[in-house]
Structures are given as C-alpha cells and as structure tokens.
C-alpha cells in the first residue's frame, strides 16, 4: 500500500462564462492526482445547460472524476437531468453511494452525499415544533444516514468522505457565525467518525478556511474554489484503513 493522491475542488459554479477556464489546469491532472473529487455546486442554478458546461470542463480527463451535487445544483429542480448529463460525460455522481477506484497505489473508496445544514453540537437545530423545522432537520438526518451507509459499503485501502456541506465548524472560520447552521451539520461528522475514514472533503463555505478535524480525529478539508484559489488541491494519503 503506497500513497494515494486525491485531487479535489468544489463550488466551481459553472455556466457558459466559465467554460474553458479550468481546463488548461486539468489536462495534465494525472501527473498530480490519481482521482479528482468535485465537492458540489458544480453549476450556478442547476440547469441542464449549466450541467453541459460541467460535462465539457470535467469530462474526458485522464483520471476518474467523482462528484456530489450541492445546493446550487438543486436550485433548478432538475437533479435527475443534471445527474444524467454528468454521468454521460463519464463523471460518477454520488448521493448516498460509494465507489472504489483502483490506483497504482491501492484502492481508494469514496463515499458521497450532499449533506445539509442544521449546525453543530450544542448549537444545533432540533426536530421540534413546526413541520417545516422538522423537515429541515430530518433532511440532514437522512443525508447523514446516507453517508454512513455509503461509507460502510466501501471495501478499500483508503476511505474518503465527500460532501458539499461541512461536517465541522473548524473550516467555517471566516464565515459569519450566524449562518453556520446553513453551512453544515455535526451529524455528518458523526457519520464519518463511525467508520474508519482517512479524509473528509467538502465545499459550500466560500469564505471559510481549508483545514479542520472531526471530533474523532478525521482530517477535514474545505476545497471550495474561493478558499483554495487554484484549479484543485492535492492531498496525499499515506496510510491504510
């Protein structure tokens, strides 16, 4: 078992005005990474036209591309079409599923789910009161349960969790405290900590910071494009599950 190189970026928010901007940095991605993860908010409004832009920009690369969707990708209410367009371009789109990619240095498993908000332990929303409030919290609970299921399903050397929303408050520093409940949920961290995981990747927090850690000690990296300020970041994992 050797070193697996994970490339990752989120929040590229593609539309026609961005197509071609990332591509020059992606053409030799295999020299830098064994896989490229996309941490949601691939589009601006979640339209099929924007999904075609994602397909053009991230399709046909020489490493496998594995994505989750973000809140922007849900805005147009056309998730099935958007997902289909990305899949037709060769991307793997995860929502409560896992996928294993064989690399020269071992099998890398990625479990993906969009996640949702709700906030963090001691300050979190609870499923109490109005139906709208219960629905909000239950969507997060459901998403976290999908992530657990996906992580458990993986048989691999290295396990990575991929979400759009953040599992920890650490990577939100720089965001206004008042919006933390819309940026992530501790339930995602709890799901990640329940299964041996080497790395948790997320996006969504454009004004946050790169590094954090779950209560269970799993490294968390916010790869939102405005945070990393490069085409993608690379993480080299040198340990086994």
């Amino acid at each position: 078992m050797g070193r697996v190189r994970v490339g990752a970026v989120g929040d590229v928010h593609l539309d026609r005005d961005v197509v071609g901007r990332f591509r020059p940095a992606l053409d030799d991605v295999a020299e830098h990474a064994d896989i490229l993860l996309l941490a949601g908010d691939l589009t601006r409004h979640g339209t099929p036209e924007e999904a075609e832009c994602v397909a053009a920009e991230f399709g046909g690369l020489d490493v496998p591309v594995v994505a989750v969707l973000g809140n922007h990708d849900y805005h147009g209410d056309r998730v099935t079409e958007v997902t289909g367009i990305l899949q037709a371009a060769g991307l793997t789109v995860l929502e409560g599923e896992g996928t294993v990619v064989e690399t020269q240095n071992g099998n890398l498993g990625v479990a993906g789910a969009k996640g949702f908000g709700g906030g963090f332990a001691g300050r979190c929303a609870t499923a109490f009161g109005e139906p709208e409030m219960k629905d909000f919290v239950r969507h997060t609970e459901f998403s976290a349960s999908l992530l657990t299921k996906a992580l458990e399903s993986l048989e691999c050397d290295v396990r990575v969790a991929l979400t759009h929303y953040s599992p920890v408050p650490d990577t939100l520093q720089g965001e206004p405290l008042e919006i933390y409940p819309f940026l992530g949920s501790y339930l995602l961290a709890e799901a990640i900590d329940a299964v041996p995981t080497q790395l948790a990747i997320h996006g969504h927090a454009h004004a946050g910071v790169e590094r954090g850690v779950t209560p269970g000690g799993v490294r968390v990296r916010n790869v939102a494009h405005p945070v990393i300020r490069q085409a993608y970041s690379v993480f080299v994992i040198d340990q086994t599950c």
């Binding site: 901007r21 020059p24 940095a25 830098h32 080497q198 490069q230 085409a231 690379v234």
Partner: peptide
C-alpha cells in the same frame, strides 16, 4: 475572481492529525 492555476504543492497526510500534523 479566484485564480485557476495548477496546484504547486500537495499536502501530505500521514498519521493522525493529533499526532504528526500535516
């Protein structure tokens, strides 16, 4: 508008975060 250049370095993740650090 954030830049889109290739990564110039990678982050090594070895051991547990509480121990060695990155």
């Amino acid at each position: 508008v954030p830049r889109v250049h290739k990564p110039q370095e990678s982050e090594e993740l070895t051991g547990r975060p509480a121990a060695a650090g990155a």
